[in-house]
């Protein structure tokens, strides 16, 4: 590959045709094939931050789920978890522990008390770095829990482009069924929507059968209008999920950002008939916080969008807090984290 000499330019995706001549990828069931880049649509988007924030602030106050309903909702949240570890010190040891927790996320006695079969409650996916994909795939054999790999030079996404594509291919080859890619945030900040489209398109192609989850890194995107435009471009380029954050930016998933993204998902669905999933990630640590995200999804997109094929929460510590709340509901006593098997 050649490295560009122009210091003001990001490396642009190559080996794909110019924007005008692109065809959507063949549609697979349940997947978003994408569509030609509609620049007029993208550029026309304007998001009013203050109004979005006002709406976001009332999502937790206009609705409330209590008692049995709250327990049911929390179990639903568990099924939508992308149980994640993305640390420099990850080893097969802690990943195996994570995978075991993914299979049995909530104590059997609690599920019995709640009247929910344990088979129904397993997490949405396990999310790891490429190096741990094989370990996780092996550990989850027979469970149907997919392994997701973060990819494309996570978290900054500024590795050489060819390497990023190779990284996707390697993770898919290692058994990852979902690939969480990061975009070049610079494309968004510079309004270079063609470059963003081409980049995501190339990622999508490299994914093959694996589902493509596109991390926008919203904490780096500066404005909600940028978040909306990047969401649309990622979907047009064939994202199966759009995801807020890497968890490594200073600001991660916030309700206003989520609100903007799910509204774009709704819009894309209305125009193309393709339902793209949503994944908030980073900073969601409490059961109450998770419920707020579920309420956002149900209110803005409906119950069908709050299932693991269309909704994931990227988290790790969250699960323990959910377990504590469930135990509290079952016993009437406030729980402690050491009472629940650690992640």
């Amino acid at each position: 590959m050649t490295v560009t000499r122009d210091p003001t330019r990001f490396e642009r995706p190559r080996a794909v045709a110019p924007a005008s001549g692109r065809e959507p990828a063949p549609a697979a069931p349940g997947r978003n094939p994408g569509m030609p880049l509609d620049l007029d649509r993208v550029r026309a988007l304007r998001i009013n931050r203050s109004a979005v924030e006002r709406r976001a602030a009332t999502i937790p106050t206009r609705r409330s789920v209590k008692r049995d309903w709250q327990a049911g909702w929390l179990l639903r949240a568990v099924t939508c978890l992308d149980l994640t570890t993305l640390q420099g010190d990850d080893t097969p040891g802690n990943v195996l522990r994570l995978c075991a927790k993914a299979r049995w996320p909530v104590r059997e006695d609690l599920l019995d008390a709640l009247g929910v079969p344990s088979a129904a409650v397993r997490v949405g996916a396990v999310c790891v770095y490429h190096a741990l994909v094989e370990t996780a795939v092996e550990a989850l054999l027979g469970s149907e829990i997919p392994v997701a790999a973060v990819s494309t030079g996570f978290p900054a996404g500024l590795n050489p482009f060819a390497q990023r594509l190779e990284e996707i291919a390697a993770s898919v080859a290692a058994g990852a069924r979902e690939i969480d890619v990061v975009i070049t945030r610079g494309h968004v900040l510079r309004g270079d929507w063609e470059a963003l489209y081409d980049e995501v398109r190339a990622f999508r192609r490299a994914c093959g059968e694996a589902h493509l989850k596109v991390i926008l890194g919203t904490g780096d995107l500066a404005t909600l209008t940028n978040v909306a435009r990047a969401s649309q471009v990622a979907m047009m380029a064939g994202a199966d999920f759009i995801k807020t954050s890497t968890g490594k930016e200073p600001v991660n998933a916030t309700l206003p950002v989520g609100l903007v993204m799910v509204r774009q998902i709704r819009d894309y669905d209305e125009r193309t008939g393709h339902a793209v999933g949503f994944k908030p990630a980073g900073g969601i640590r409490s059961a109450k916080g998770a419920l707020e995200w579920l309420m956002l999804m149900k209110e803005e997109l409906g119950e069908r969008w709050v299932r693991p094929d269309r909704f994931r929460i990227g988290a790790s510590a969250l699960l323990t807090d959910i377990e504590r709340q469930l135990e509290h509901f079952v016993t009437g006593r406030y729980s402690a984290d050491y009472r629940h098997p650690m992640v």
Binding site: R63, V65, W69, G72, W73, L75
Partner: peptide
């Protein structure tokens, strides 16, 4: 018998929050 929790888990319905 389906518990309310199981029903809420399956349907994600709103319950009373008085």
């Amino acid at each position: 018998m389906t518990t309310t929790v199981a029903r809420a888990f399956a349907s994600l319905e709103w319950g009373p929050a008085p």
